[in-house]
Simulated assay, not measured.
Amino acid sequence: MNPLYFDHCASTPPLASVVRTVSELMTLHYANSGALHRSGAEALKLVERARTVVANALGARPGEVVFTSGGTESNNLALKGTVAKSRKASKHIVTTAIEHASVFACAQQLEAAGVRATYLPVDERGIVSVRDVEAAIADDTALVSVMHVNNETGAIQPIEEIGRLLEGYPQVRFHVDGVQAIGKMPVRWREWGVDLYAASAHKFQGPKGVGFLLVREGVELDPLLIGGGQEDGLRSGTHNLPGIVAGAQALRLAVESTEARRERMYALRRRLIGHLRDIPELHLNGSESETASAPQVVNVSYPGMRPEVIVHMLEQHGVLVSTQSACSSKSLKPSRVLLAMGMDAHRASGSIRISFGDEHGTDEIDALAERLKTAVAKLKPLERT
Rank of each mutant, 00 (worst) to 15 (best):
N151K: 06
G227Q: 03
L166S: 04
T27C: 10
V103F: 02
E364S: 11
G318E: 07
V297H: 03
Y302P: 14
A326N: 15
L339G: 06
V133P: 05
K184E: 07
L268A: 09
S293C: 04
E99T: 14
V54N: 13
L253A: 06
G183C: 05
P207V: 03
G81E: 01
A107K: 03
G361H: 05
H92E: 06
E364T: 13
S293K: 00
P303C: 04
L224P: 09
T12Y: 03
T72F: 00
P207K: 01
S287P: 01
I352A: 07
H360G: 02
D139Y: 02
F6R: 00
R188N: 15
D358P: 03
E152S: 04
L253D: 15
M343E: 15
V94L: 14
E256D: 15
G206R: 02
R306W: 13
T291H: 07
S322Q: 07
R235Y: 01
L241A: 01
Q108D: 13
Q249A: 04
L4T: 14
E281R: 00
L165D: 12
P158K: 08
I93N: 02
A101L: 03
E263V: 13
N56V: 03
K208A: 10
L379N: 05
V321N: 05
N76D: 01
F6N: 00
L77Q: 11
R131W: 09
P14E: 01
G227S: 08
V245D: 12
